[in-house]
């Protein structure tokens, strides 16, 4: 669906996007994740043909965004970051205007508008001026505008920014529903959003891709073993000594907890089995054994901050 090679955009001499390559298959829901100013919006603008790349190539549905811009634009639905709309038009006037420019006419236009209105729950505000709508409804109008022509690819730039929590949930549900049949790229700087709707995440920092994969992949690749929490009925001293001797252990912290001991073991690999066997062979009673997964938040922070030096 999308094939991007060495895509670069410079504003002056400062690269906003610096040699980015990735490809996205049909039907994926991909989250562009990165701190503000990382180059998410610029990348999306290049994919939609709004900005030309300084160098590199981006193909959308087998069309070059630079030389075949009109063909690309026909296949893409785009919601820019600020959800720009015309406050003086009513919702239905606006959707008809966009639909007409999308080349829809007659019954195709009517059914396109109906479908988008249904999908985005805009039935009650059709006749209202967009200027009178709340932020949540405006966001839905923006989404409706993007899906009017039933595009293969949806590009949504921060679709939930500035919404209240319940609106955020609504929009996410809408995006998830759309993602069932379409390829979706959405950008965000909120991790839980990626967790909620995306099957794959591309983390961008300072114009470069620092990670790319499914959420499970990322966890596995970047957490190592993580921290193992153990609660065990045994002498504290013995626990510390025996656990430290296991392979891969980097640190052991223990503290007494009633008549048992609580131990936190930092390690490079998964120790659960080894700990269990050790407890069995020593005759200790194992009360709790829990591998705490390093959450995406810390992976994200780790990835986006390690770029701060010269690269």
């Amino acid at each position: 669906m999308i094939d991007v090679t060495e895509l670069t955009k410079k504003y002056g001499t400062e690269p906003a996007v610096d040699g980015v390559s990735f490809s996205i298959r049909r039907g994926e829901v991909v989250g562009f994740l990165g701190p503000n100013g990382a180059g998410k919006t610029t990348t999306m603008r290049m994919l939609t043909g709004f900005l030309p790349p300084t160098s590199g190539r981006a193909m959308v549905a087998d069309h070059d965004v630079l030389t075949n811009s009109l063909d690309v634009r026909r296949r893409v639905g785009y919601l820019p970051e600020t959800t720009p709309l015309y406050p003086d038009l009513s919702v239905v006037e606006y959707l008809q205007f966009i639909g007409a420019l999308r080349g829809l006419a007659g019954s195709a236009l009517a059914s396109g508008v109906d479908r988008a209105v249904d999908a985005c729950g805009l039935g009650d505000v059709l006749g209202k001026d967009i200027g009178e709508l709340s932020k949540g409804f405006r966001q839905r109008v923006g989404l409706a505008q993007a899906i009017l022509h039933d595009p293969d690819l949806l590009i949504l730039d921060e679709p939930t920014s500035g919404l209240d929590p319940s609106q955020v949930v609504e929009v996410r549900e809408l995006v998830s529903a759309l993602g069932k049949e379409k390829t979706v790229i959405l950008s965000t700087h909120i991790l839980s959003e990626v967790q909620a709707v995306c099957s794959r995440v591309i983390i961008i920092s300072r114009g470069r891709i620092v990670a790319d994969g499914s959420l499970a992949d990322l966890r596995q690749r970047h957490t190592g073993g993580g921290v193992l929490n153990v609660e065990i009925r045994a002498p504290e001293e013995a626990v510390r000594r025996k656990f430290s001797a296991l392979t891969g252990v980097t640190a052991v912290r223990t503290r007494p907890l009633g008549d048992s001991v609580h131990a936190e073991i930092d390690s490079r690999n998964d120790l659960r089995e080894a700990v269990f066997r050790l407890a069995v062979s020593e005759g200790w009673t194992l009360l709790e054994l829990r591998q705490s997964i390093i959450d995406l938040e810390s992976i994200f922070l780790q990835l986006t901050s390690k770029q701060s030096g010269p690269s």
Binding site: G49, L70, R73, P80, P84, Y86, I98, L101, R102
Partner: peptide
């Protein structure tokens, strides 16, 4: 308003 960004990404010259 930024509406130009939508207009410019529609299949319109």
């Amino acid at each position: 308003r930024g509406t130009f960004e939508i207009l410019a990404t529609l299949p319109v010259r």
